[in-house]
Design a protein around this nucleic acid. Structure first.
Lengths: 95, 95
DNA sequence: CTCTAGGGCTAGGGTTAA
DNA sequence: TTTAACCCTAGCCCTAGA
């Protein structure tokens, strides 16, 4: 009996602990080895309520977020008239 | 400049016909099956200019309105222990 | 059969406009 | 100020292909 099968009903935010376990698992097994990460005793307890699909989806979302952060750091191309550089309020959405 | 053209620029208010189609679609497919409702030939023509997100948002707003009406009608008497809620038949859509 | 990759869809918080 | 309509996106679903 696998308790992961029971958790189909929840819509769950990822905790920092789960994210850490996922990243550590990726470092150890590689991105894409979702079932290997879940089966690893080192991460199993932290990711008990996640499926291999959950891991894949979460990794994708993390990559999307990293990508958008990178785009913010890239130097702005030369334009005229200059693009407005008003600071973005922290409660606004990125992108 | 025709004032009716101004109407096109406003936010797209839901018509009673659209609301009826949405409710009928929910009865048939269930709340949450927004794309199924849109794809159903029975409702497609009436909801032609709505997206699945529009359907979801409209249903939420309708529920909010119903809820506030309920709260106005029910003074919510203090009881202890709390009154138990009636169970819902499992063969019905949850709505 | 299981597992992964990637597109699609929903839920719910947040924002805008009237 | 209120709120119907609309936006953003994390999380979850569907499914072809390995």
């Amino acid at each position: 009996f696998d308790s992961r099968e029971m958790v189909e009903l929840r819509r769950n935010r990822w905790t920092p602990e789960e994210e850490g376990a996922l990243l550590a698992g990726i470092c150890k097994h590689g991105a894409g080895k979702w079932m290997n990460i879940l089966d690893d005793p080192e991460f199993r307890s932290e990711l008990l309520y996640r499926t291999n699909i959950d891991l894949k989806d979460k990794w994708r979302n993390m990559m999307i977020k990293e990508k958008s952060k990178m785009q913010k750091l890239e130097p702005a191309p030369f334009t005229f008239p200059p693009a407005k550089t008003s600071p973005v309020a922290s409660n606004e959405h990125p992108l």
